[in-house]
Each structure stands twice: as structure tokens, then as C-alpha cells.
Design a protein around this nucleic acid. Structure first.
Lengths: 226, 226
DNA sequence: GTCTATATTTAGATAGAC
DNA sequence: GTCTATCTAAATATAGAC
């Protein structure tokens, strides 16, 4: 029986390794973490890491894949719901919300905070293409959201929408990546934010930011006319 | 004579090491680069790295400090000019421009592209505080710009301004950090951007984004009234 | 300042008993 | 599945001749 952990039971070695690796990779980055570090903090022999995962590289991939599929599913579902509710013409806020909310929700959980940081690290890494994780697991859904943004803003230049998308990624990943500096510079001005408040802020910021890029010849679409 | 390099002269060993270290640290990160990598690509003996810089850690700091002082000076000068031209009440665009332009200019030069990526990496690193580079060299001027933003937008909530600041950092660093994924997702939609165009876009995006956070009781200030 | 040679530590990975 | 013990390669750093 793999399922049915009792409350007092210690997680299986494999899971302890996964959780510890996730935390350490997120905090320090792949190359700054040794298998000895992981084994030590997970209270598992180094040999067991090889036994369960094969190699450091494969362990890293296992850490990613463990959580990525469920998150991606929820993002897809959110986008599909926004599409269905509007006959394929969703508002830009609904699209951005479906895109960002699952990430922020993960960031705001005890067990997901490190994974959020790890994703941010991976997306910002100039070398990510060599590992292929972003390209195979995140790029497909990214293209779906880009297409949805274009449907939501049919009168914007495509290049504007793409810029906004990358801006969104930038601010989304920063809110996940380095909360310490945020606290250092801004102190309690940014504490005690609920998940909802952060998502709303991100979405509102990008939505407003996009007002700069409306194509000049666009007719009013019942929205802001500036 | 240290100065007065002839055109055909090979850069001194110390400078070759610095340039190579800058590029490799930017592309792969501190821990993924060995002194052997640097020595190999710089065509310098490993022992010479120790001789010139003392240790890998000190080499890393030397790479940072080489370019940071001039950039910071230019950012300060830009802010001072914006302040002086408006009797201490600069527009938010002028403040953001002074903040971002020197970074984008560096990013867009042949010799500075790697440094821009390195800075982005450092700012997004959850572990930066341990090294203290960001805290000692970037936080002071960050606080100056935060104060200038508050002066430029006296009717905004302070927390809104701080959020916008961190958003700005996020999108600024992403445009410096991982251009490859941008190209992968958006292709030639984002090519051939001049420095001016990128700065304008960043500034316009954040300025518009900030419209979301205007304090409700603020009287119109001659700007957008929504 | 630059080189060769080497000391010392730490890394990822595996062999084989239990 | 888990352990001890160990292999091999790679890392940073230094010693000392030139």
C-alpha cells in the first residue's frame, strides 16, 4: 500500500529526498547544492539518491515533474473556463488571472513556496534551454495564453501583447523569487498580502500597462477609451 | 604604463580573466563555472587567477565592482537632472527613465551584455544577501529612486509605489536575463528594438500600470483621470 | 607576472553486504 | 530498500622555479 500514510508516520525516503531537494535547489540553485547536502538534510544516505533517481540531473527533473502537471492542469482549466464563459472572447483580466493565480496560490502554501521559487529560477535562467524543462513543459501553455491574450485584445499590436506577456512573466517570477529583498527595501509595506490581493495587483498592473500599447487605429470596444 | 593600449596589443591577463569571468558567470551562474573554465577560455593559467584576485569569490566581486560604479553614477546623475529640471517634483516617467536607461544601454552594448545578465541574476537570487553585493551596492540607490517615485506620485499609496517598484525590477531584469526564451516564444516580433524603444516601453508600461493604484481620495493632478 | 607541479577537499556515482 | 565503504574525477588553492 503506497497510499494511506498514518499521521505519525515518517514520509518515505524517496519523498523526503524529493522535498529536501526541492527546497535546496530553490534556495541555492542546482550547482550550489551537493547530493551530500540533500542526503544530510533529508536524513538519507547518498547512495539512496542514486538508487531512487539515478543521478543528480534526474533528481532535478523529478522535482520539477512532481508538481508541474497539476499546476498546468489548473491553469488550463482556468483558461478554458474563461473562454467558455465568454464564447471565446474573454476579457484580458480573466486571461491573466487564469495564468497567474495557480502560481501565486502555490507560492502561498507551506509546501509549495520552494517550488514557486524554483520555477522562477528556471524561467530566468539563460541556460534553461539546455535542460529543456521550460521548453517542453512550460512553453506549450505559454503559447496558449499568448493566443488567448491576442483574442482578448484583438485591436492591440501583436508585438505589444508579446511585450506585455514577458513583462508579466518578469514581475510574476520576481514576486516568487526573492522576497527577502522586497522586505529589505519596503519593510512591512508589503506584508500580509492575501493571495487574492497579490493576483489582483498583478492583473491590474499588467492590464493598465497594456493601455499604452493599443493600436492607434483601434475603434472603441466598449472598454476604456482613454 | 598601464594606460595607452595599442590597437593590436593583447589585453593584459588580468583583463582577459575579468572579461571571461564576467561572461561565464553571467551565462551559467557562479557555482556552475570553475576556475578551470575561466582560465581555459581566457587563455590564462589558473594560478594567475589566484595571483590577481585571491580567490574565486573575490574574482566574482571584482567583476561586479568593475562596472557598477560608473553605472550607478549615471543613474544618480539622471535622477538629479530630473529633479533639478522640475524643482524636486519630477514626473514619474522621468524618474523611471533615469532608473532604467543606464541598464538597458549597457545591455545593448557588445561589451556590456553579459554584465546586464549578471546583475539580473544577482538581483533575482534568493541568496544574494549572503554575498552582500546587492545590499551594499544597489540597495542605497534603490532607496533613492523609491523616494523619488514617492515625490513624483504624492497621491498614491506608498504600498502601491513599492509594488510598482518591484514589478519594475522584475520586468527590467527579465529583459536582461533570458532573451532566448523571449525569442523562442515571440520570434521576430521583438527583434530589432532600439535602446530608446525598449526604455520607452518599460517606462510607459509601469507608468500606466501605476494608474491602478492611485489612492481613491486623490484629486486630479492634471494627468489621466480615468 | 607567469609557469609547472601538486596539495587538499569535495564532488557524483557505484559495489556489495544486509 | 538501506547501509558502509570506496572509486574516480573535478574542484579550489598554493608552492616554488623562472
Amino acid at each position: 500500500m503506497r497510499a494511506g500514510l498514518q499521521v505519525t508516520e515518517r514520509p518515505a525516503t524517496r519523498d523526503r529526498i524529493l522535498a529536501t531537494a526541492e527546497r535546496l535547489f530553490a534556495e541555492r540553485g542546482y550547482h550550489a547544492v551537493s547530493l551530500r547536502d540533500i542526503g544530510g538534510e533529508a536524513d538519507a544516505q547518498i547512495a539512496l539518491i542514486s538508487y531512487h533517481f539515478g543521478s543528480k540531473e534526474l533528481l532535478y527533473r523529478a522535482v520539477f515533474e512532481r508538481r508541474l502537471t497539476p499546476v498546468t492542469e489548473r491553469r488550463r482549466a482556468g483558461l478554458a473556463a474563461a473562454m467558455a464563459a465568454t464564447q471565446g472572447r474573454p476579457g484580458i483580466e480573466a486571461v491573466l488571472d487564469a495564468f497567474a493565480r495557480p502560481w501565486i496560490e502555490i507560492r502561498d502554501t507551506e509546501e509549495g513556496q520552494f517550488y514557486a521559487r524554483l520555477i522562477a529560477r528556471e524561467v530566468n535562467d539563460p541556460q534553461e534551454q539546455e535542460r529543456g524543462i521550460v521548453e517542453s513543459l512550460l512553453d506549450p501553455i505559454a503559447r496558449d495564453f499568448l493566443a488567448a491574450m491576442e483574442r482578448a485584445l484583438p485591436h492591440h499590436e501583436r508585438s505589444e501583447i508579446h511585450w506585455a506577456y514577458h513583462f508579466f512573466i518578469g514581475l510574476l517570477t520576481l514576486t516568487m523569487a526573492n522576497p527577502r529583498r522586497v522586505r529589505r527595501l519596503s519593510g512591512d509595506l508589503m506584508e500580509e498580502q492575501t493571495t487574492d490581493a497579490v493576483v489582483s495587483r498583478l492583473v491590474a498592473f499588467v492590464t493598465n500597462g497594456l493601455q499604452a500599447g493599443k493600436a492607434p487605429e483601434a475603434p472603441s470596444q466598449g472598454g476604456r477609451t482613454e
